[in-house]
């Protein structure tokens, strides 16, 4: 369990990288996260998360081309590995499972699960 643990922020980052598909590099991830979560995200937090996820094996990366922008620095593009996808799926499954077990009378709001 410990090895596959996903923090909330990490999960978000993984998901956003999935959304961005081929264009997932630091700044893009940060912006997408801000749009999706409606909060301000520091680039430092993004870099920390992506690199940590890469160390865990959930992400793989490759550098793009050298361009004139960014002071000649290459972009580092991330992709979610199969292993990462599995972790995401597991997290989602666990949540669904939990949601399903909530009795219909317990919550007052309607969700798709309590049929």
């Amino acid at each position: 369990m410990k090895g596959t643990y996903l923090g909330e922020f990490e999960e978000l980052v993984l998901l956003v990288i999935g959304i961005l598909n081929d264009g997932a590099y630091g700044v893009a991830i940060k912006k997408e996260l801000e749009i999706q979560s409606k909060r301000t995200i520091s680039i430092g937090a993004v870099h920390a998360a992506t690199n940590r996820l890469e160390q865990k094996g959930y992400l793989e990366s490759e550098f793009g081309e050298i361009t004139k922008e960014r002071g000649g620095k290459r972009k580092k593009f991330y992709k979610v590995t199969i292993y990462g996808q599995r972790a995401l799926k597991e997290a989602m499954d666990m949540r669904t499972r939990l949601w399903r077990q909530i009795p219909a009378t317990s919550f007052t709001i309607k969700t798709s699960f309590n049929v």
């Binding site: 590099y25 630091g26 700044v27 940060k30 680039i43 870099h47 690199n51 550098f63 922008e69 960014r70 002071g71 620095k73 290459r74 972009k75 580092k76």
Partner: peptide, 15 residues
């Protein structure tokens, strides 16, 4: 090993 990524992103945001 982190410098290129970090500095690149920072510079982009800077611009």
């Amino acid at each position: 090993e982190f410098i290129e990524e970090v500095q690149g992103d920072l510079e982009e945001l800077y611009d």
